[in-house]
Design a protein around this nucleic acid. Structure first.
Lengths: 194, 194
DNA sequence: CGTCTATTTGAATGTACTCAAAAGCGGTGG
DNA sequence: CCACCGCTTTTGAGTACATTCAAATAGACG
């Protein structure tokens, strides 16, 4: 059953009848992506909310100097999208890339809107999902303003213990907002201390 | 009619019948706050979503060094709350303070939940509101990582033209993530250039 | 293996911060 | 209405955290 994980994800916030589950899964598309493959690039209109069932994705932007900035990672059981573009249906700035071979489930914007009409509970689900994401993002803003790179890294390690293992350092550096060079020095400093 | 502004705010995303408007406004509490008065402090549980009708509020945290970091301003027609605390009903870290004498409308968490049940359209309204807030916060994260303080200030001026006039420089500095001293130097540099 | 990318190390630099002090500004009370 | 007080803003000098550019080393993948 390829939709077990996503149904379980949703059941954490709303309860669906068997019929509703059928309707919902009918709107989904399973897909596999290979490492380094892009699900979305800058300038594109984001047409899908993506749910990861295996592997790992990342969302990032590229600034005018060509430097990448990781906005977030999406390991299994996570949702990812260019929220700006998805909402406005205007060209966005986010790249979504597979960091490794991954399995994802796509829910198109159109089907998402249908869901809202046919099963209003989904309004609730996505409201809660968005609220949680908002809280995490607000915390990150505060952390970026008030903590040193070292403290931000410590927090990252605690919050995403499963990710640190198999993520390139470069990507973690980009997420916490430092250069790979500084990240490398920082880590060796931290090892010395402990 | 003290609720004109908030009803208008809501009508941008959902349409309410006269009866629904009655129910909704019945759940609201109007309140005035004086300059420097706190609506919420660290350690408190956030019990209200606050809508500003006059004046201006700010939400900020205080780090372990005692430095304040402004998470956001709330001029008229804006909502503000400690989303973390409001959602979890656990003690939060946000302070919400009136920057000037202000009029606000409070919607308690309890009444908000009632609204969701009685008028499910409100799920939609707050989902959209939260989505917009999320997008703004994500953009801010990217900006903080990829732009200089000067660029962030320029963006702030463009995005909140009505705010720059009557906000203390200190508060703007805190919002864009620099010290007041650096902010002052930065501004004089920018004036020289133009 | 060889190539490509990721990571480390080094040296010089820059952006923004800290601490200290002076100047400006606004409100309040005599 | 002015004087004073507290808070904000400015200015100065020294410092720190993190970056840039360059090059060496190490890993991963075909």
């Amino acid at each position: 059953m390829p939709f077990t994980l996503i149904l379980n994800n949703i059941s954490r916030y709303i309860q669906l009848s068997e019929i509703e589950k059928k309707i919902f899964t009918g709107y989904l598309e399973a897909k596999t992506v290979k490492k380094k493959q892009l699900l979305l690039t800058e300038g594109e209109i984001c047409k899908y909310s993506t749910f990861v069932t295996a592997g790992c994705l990342r969302g990032y932007t590229v600034d005018k100097g060509g430097v990448e900035h990781v906005l977030g990672f999406a390991p299994p059981d996570w949702w990812i999208a260019d929220m700006y573009s998805l909402i406005t249906q205007k060209p966005g700035t986010l790249y979504i890339e597979a960091l490794e071979d991954s399995d994802v489930i796509l829910l198109s914007k159109i089907n998402q809107e249908k869901l809202y009409l046919e099963i209003p509970k989904f309004e609730r689900f996505f409201r809660i999902l968005t609220e949680k994401s908002l809280v995490a993002n607000q915390q990150r803003i505060v952390d970026n303003m008030s903590l040193t790179a070292e403290e931000r890294y410590s927090i990252f390690c605690k919050r995403y213990p499963t990710l640190i293992d198999h993520l390139p350092h470069k990507q973690i550096a980009s997420y916490i907002g430092v250069t790979p060079e500084f990240f490398s020095r920082m880590r060796s400093e931290m090892l010395k201390k402990k």
